[in-house]
Design a protein around this nucleic acid. Structure first.
Lengths: 241, 241
DNA sequence: GTGTATTTGTTCGTATGTATT
DNA sequence: TAATACATACGAACAAATACA
């Protein structure tokens, strides 16, 4: 019977061994695997054979390599629910991940055409513009730029500077609740600045979301554009019940 | 820094810039682009370089040139509403565009892990798989692959071959209505085959949507993956009321 | 910033075993 | 049997991105 047995390739055994290591928690997401040189020594094979195994694992999305740096256990893509209410921190905390926010810039300036249209303003009316970066477990997930009508929320910027939370800042300005009125999604290439902030490569795919939030009276509160790192996030539209 | 700069051809940058202009609505369908002379002045390059970019865009169908007249935008990016019900033909017809569908392949095969999970089957159970291409005004918009439980809808393939309409084929199998239970979105790069079918360039950004449809009893009817050409489509999530 | 070592990515070449024609 | 194609495995060298003193 043994003559009918398939002998499994060496690289496949290595792939399984490393996959088991990850599955059993000896390497956790974000960890760097040993270098190809170390692995080829450990398994007693040529570096190409290790590379074959790693390539196989990369194709299934289990690991990803960074040239000059190493091979890393992939983070599972962050599930980012979008629906009637979009709340970054709560979303991530419920997923058991550590949310963080970095402020890139805060300013008040004249609204451009799109902003004015979305917020029911006239072009040139003042808007507060809040640019920042949201992270999960220290990894940049999404870059955003939100515009708020300045005359309606005069002291929003102070609150934003203090709390970094849009929900809290709006609440301080008298907006008890807000919901997503419309969302438009498309796939783009990362520009140089986006790539820099999201720590991806220029030209990498990003998911651009353009959304309008409204308050309980359906008055627009926020016009926001978000750029999600394509391979780090999956937007989920859950069943509207 | 500059010595690490990418060596992408100048014409490609121009092509991307103009494509972005169109995608973002600065030129709308039927609009005449600036003359080649004006464009070469604006980008500071020779007219031949602009021609190269325009030729590239014409090949993807985004613009078309008329000798002695000018270069015109062939079409606007398609607004594609997704929500509780996703109906390709109806969506496009309401947008005043001409929908079409091309069948790439139809087969029955064993379900893989994901398909089985989504459709509440066991891995290896038979599924009908329908691959195709949807077009608007002759332009490929989205490539899709849908899997249906074969044992639940034995003669679905016949109806699909005949009508090309998923809604009609399911109706013929006794499914009066179906709704979208979940949708997952992410941005990816186009593979070679995707680029070929969607008539874009390899590596161009695409928006991948993974969805599960269920019937009135919330039994899964369809597990579908769609790849939208990023430049040609904007997904719109309308306010769930 | 600069230079150097490290690490992955790519491309040559060599050899062997297996399956197909 | 011979010719061919393909997958596997090893070796060497260099390119490109990164990390670090």
């Amino acid at each position: 019977m043994s003559r009918f047995q398939k002998k499994t390739p060496v690289w496949e055994g290595i792939s399984r061994a490393l996959t088991a290591d990850i599955a059993e928690g000896r390497y956790t997401p974000g960890d760097k695997l040993p270098t190809e040189a170390e692995l080829s020594a450990r398994f007693g094979v040529n570096r190409h054979t290790v590379r074959h195994a790693l390539k196989d694992m990369a194709e299934t999305g289990l690991v990803h390599a960074r040239r000059g740096s190493g091979v890393y256990v992939a983070q599972r893509p962050t599930d980012y629910p979008i629906g009637k209410r979009v709340r970054f921190h709560r979303n991530l905390q419920q997923a058991g991940r550590l949310p963080a926010k970095e402020t890139l810039s805060i300013e008040t300036r004249a609204a451009d055409q799109r902003e004015a249209e979305a917020l029911h303003l006239n072009k040139g009316d003042p808007v507060h513009v809040y640019e920042g970066l949201s992270l999960a477990d220290g990894q940049p997930i999404v870059m955003f730029r939100s515009a708020f009508p300045a005359e309606r929320y005069p002291d929003l910027l102070e609150h934003l500077t203090f709390s970094k939370s849009v929900t809290a800042a709006l609440k301080a300005c008298g907006v008890e609740d807000y919901t997503r009125a419309s969302t438009r999604l498309t796939a783009k290439r990362a520009t140089t600045t986006q790539a820099l902030h999201l720590r991806i490569r220029e030209g990498d795919p990003i998911l651009r979301s353009v959304g309008i939030n409204v308050d309980a009276n359906r008055v627009p509160t926020e016009y926001g554009v978000s750029w999600f790192a394509g391979d780090r996030v999956t937007l989920t539209l859950s069943d509207p019940e």
